[in-house]
Design a protein around this nucleic acid. Structure first.
Ligand SMILES: [Mn+2]
Ligand SMILES: [Mn+2]
Ligand SMILES: [Mn+2]
Ligand SMILES: [Mn+2]
Lengths: 225, 225
DNA sequence: TTCTGAGTTTAGGCTCGCCTAACTTATGAC
DNA sequence: GTCATAAGTTAGGCGAGCCTAAACTCAGAA
């Protein structure tokens, strides 16, 4: 029983996670995208792609990009579960703040055993989302689907609950927390200026005018007003 | 501020830990000892020794062995603190048993940040020994000295408290726990047969006749009877 | 005092994972 | 339809970290 996942290096695990994020059923991930995401030279990525497709972890169409095989996806989701549970555990059990957990999890995800991950999950009561609102894949690799809309795509006057925050930058995360724009917060879109202009959003505590980029990072579930 | 410890690989950290264990002020660690301890070929160890002595982490006298420099010792003690605190945390916070924590700690020690280690220490109230009774070096690298004697070196009739258990083998550890021979246990040596013969030891619960090897793994602090 | 064998080192080879430089392919502007 | 250019691939190199095989060192036995 030498499962593929027993022999994977840290690099390989991070490649597969990156490709999972960057590709979809309809769109492969390009070499340069992957290189950018992992801060590597495109040539290095080409080399790794060759190895991983020979190992059956991804499908490569030359000059077109890559997609994960079912096996590759399995590994990616396993890493994602680890990463997000570790983040959750650090926040809930060790007093970390949501802007500092990512780097720690990025390393620990490769070092923990399945046993440890499940113990952390149990200790937390098997949470379904991590501190940033990202869904935690189940051990069998299923990811709960949710209907989410970016704050930039909502209509003025509509209300919603913030589900998820799409950034890992500590400064950005601290700023969002300062504004009360965190997962679970109830908000109403008050105004939206055209041409990527500022957005006025009301929380239960205050009203903020924020930039388009910030608003685009907030994924929300719309609610009846 | 590029401290040496920022650029060390997992391998290097494990080498330094091994050399810390195998050498003393009066006795260097030999190539073959290190190779044995890390399950590597002696030739591989020779190569690494060359690199590490060039980096100033150890002193090498050709054909004689190695000793840590102060810098090398600093790194080794930092790893030992990590290892033992991780073991302690896994047992105290996540329900691990003392026979299963070692392998997990052996990997995690290389992945955790100083911040995380100190958070775990705080969560546990800064313990001074790990689940096996091994002392946890302080952040500044000092190790509490204790007077310990192996059960095999005690005189019949004398009483003691078990301080420390010198093994990492899960089966051995489970057996010791079954017999109640764990750190903190109060014991009295009843009989000691010559020529590495069996040893009769009495705990507060029962009396056991154990082999010499087992008794040699129990480090005790003698008490007045 | 020589010799021999255990222990140590060197030499050479391998994979992984990265790099830069040079080349190849696909694409879309014309 | 050509062709410039962006994107992708190949070629070659390097360090880390391991290996085996061969050469060397040294201490103790003869
Ligand atoms: Mn990672
Ligand atoms: Mn997250
Ligand atoms: Mn280790
Ligand atoms: Mn221990």
């Amino acid at each position: 029983m030498t499962a593929v996942s027993d022999t994977l290096t840290r690099s390989v695990e991070d490649y597969l996670k990156a490709i999972y994020r960057l590709s979809s059923d309809i769109r492969p991930a390009s070499t340069s995208e992957i290189a950018q995401h992992l801060a590597l030279a495109p040539a290095s990525v080409s080399g790794m792609i060759k190895r991983l497709s020979e190992q059956g972890l991804l499908e490569h169409e030359r000059y077109r990009g890559v997609q994960l095989t079912p096996e590759g996806r399995r590994v990616a989701l396993r890493m994602l579960r680890r990463h997000r549970l570790i983040e959750s555990y650090l926040v809930a059990a060790l007093g970390y703040s949501w802007d500092t957990v990512h780097d720690e999890a990025e390393r620990l995800e490769h070092a923990v055993s399945d046993d440890l991950v499940e113990r952390m999950a149990d200790a937390l009561g098997n949470p379904r989302v991590d501190p940033h609102g990202d869904p935690i894949p189940s051990p069998d690799g299923s990811v709960p689907e949710t209907v989410e809309v970016a704050l930039t795509d909502m209509e003025p006057g509509h209300s919603a609950r913030i589900h998820r925050v799409r950034t890992r930058e500590p400064e950005f995360l601290r700023h969002l927390a300062d504004l009360g724009l965190i997962p679970g917060a109830h908000i109403t879109l008050r105004d939206r200026r055209p041409f990527l202009g500022p957005i006025t959003v009301e929380t239960d505590q205050a009203t903020h005018v924020v930039g388009h980029e910030l608003a685009a990072a907030l994924l929300c579930a719309e609610e009846e007003s």
